[in-house]
Deep mutational scan, measured.
Amino acid sequence: KVLVLALYDYQEKSPREVTMKKGDILTLLNSTNKDWWKVEVNGRQGFVPAAYVKVL
């Protein structure tokens, strides 16, 4: 399983997205889209901007 680090806070803007806080460790589920990556955080799955996270 691939983990990513949240570099910035992100507030979800649609039901398909998830909120994350800077420093959160998320599970990367899909990174085929260069702009939006699907992650799991706190038991929820959704998209975050790829530029806001870094693969650990």
Rank of each mutant, 00 (worst) to 15 (best):
V41L: 13
T19G: 11
V48N: 00
K13Y: 05
L29R: 04
F47T: 03
K22R: 11
A50P: 08
G46Y: 03
K34T: 11
Y10V: 01
K1D: 15
F47M: 09
K13E: 13
G46I: 04
A50L: 02
V41E: 05
N30W: 07
Y8H: 15
V4K: 00
K38Y: 10
G46E: 01
V4C: 10
V55T: 10
K38R: 13
I25P: 02
W36Q: 04
F47I: 08
A6Q: 01
T32H: 15
L7I: 12
D35W: 13
V41M: 15
W37M: 05
F47P: 00
T19I: 03
P49D: 02
V41P: 00
A50C: 06
L7V: 08
V39H: 00
L26Y: 11
Y10T: 01
M20G: 00
S14P: 04
R16C: 13
L3I: 10
P49E: 02
L5G: 03
W36L: 04
L3H: 12
L29T: 06
T19A: 07
A50W: 01
K38M: 15
F47A: 03
V48H: 00
K13Q: 15
A50Y: 02
T19N: 07
L56S: 05
P49T: 01
R16V: 14
L5P: 00
L5Q: 14
L29D: 01
T32K: 13
A51M: 14
G46F: 07
G23M: 04
W37K: 02
A50V: 07
D35G: 08
V4S: 04
V2F: 11
K38G: 06
P15W: 11
E12L: 07
N30L: 13
K1V: 15
K13L: 15
E12W: 05
V55C: 09
T32W: 11
L3M: 15
L28I: 05
P15S: 15
K38H: 14
Q11T: 15
L5R: 09
Y52I: 08
S31A: 13
N33H: 15
L28A: 02
L28W: 02
L56G: 03
E12G: 13
K54F: 11
Q45W: 07
E40F: 06
R16D: 15
R44G: 05
Q45V: 13
K13I: 11
N42G: 13
K1C: 07
L56N: 04
V18M: 12
K1H: 15
F47R: 04
N33C: 08
N42T: 08
E40I: 06
K22S: 10
L29I: 12
T32C: 10
L7H: 03
Y8W: 15
G43N: 07
S14A: 09
G43F: 08
T19R: 07
L29M: 10
V48D: 00
V18N: 05
P49I: 02
V4A: 13
D35T: 12
K13S: 13
A51G: 10
L28S: 02
V18E: 01
G46K: 02
T27F: 10
S31Y: 10
D9N: 09
T27L: 11
K22H: 07
N42A: 15
A50I: 03
I25Q: 05
S31K: 12
W37V: 09
E17H: 08
F47C: 09
S31P: 12
V39I: 08
W36K: 03
K54Q: 14
E40P: 00
F47Q: 04
L5C: 07
L26T: 01
K21M: 12
K34E: 09
D24C: 05
E40H: 06
W36E: 05
Y10R: 02
V53F: 05
K21V: 12
L29Q: 05
V48G: 00
D35V: 10
T27S: 10
V18F: 09
Y10F: 08
R16L: 14
A6Y: 01
W37I: 06
A6N: 01
L7W: 04
T32F: 11
N42M: 12
L5M: 15
N42R: 11
N42Y: 09
I25L: 08
A51W: 11
N42W: 09
L56T: 06
K54R: 14
V55R: 07
E40W: 05
P15G: 13
G23P: 00
V55N: 06
L5W: 05
Q11N: 13
L56K: 04
V53I: 10
K21N: 12
N30R: 06
Q45C: 09
V39Q: 00
Q45K: 13
Y8I: 13
Y10E: 00
V53T: 05
K34N: 13
I25A: 04
L29S: 03
W37G: 00
K54C: 13
K22I: 07
G43H: 09
V55L: 11
L26N: 02
M20Y: 01
V48I: 12
V41H: 09
D9K: 03
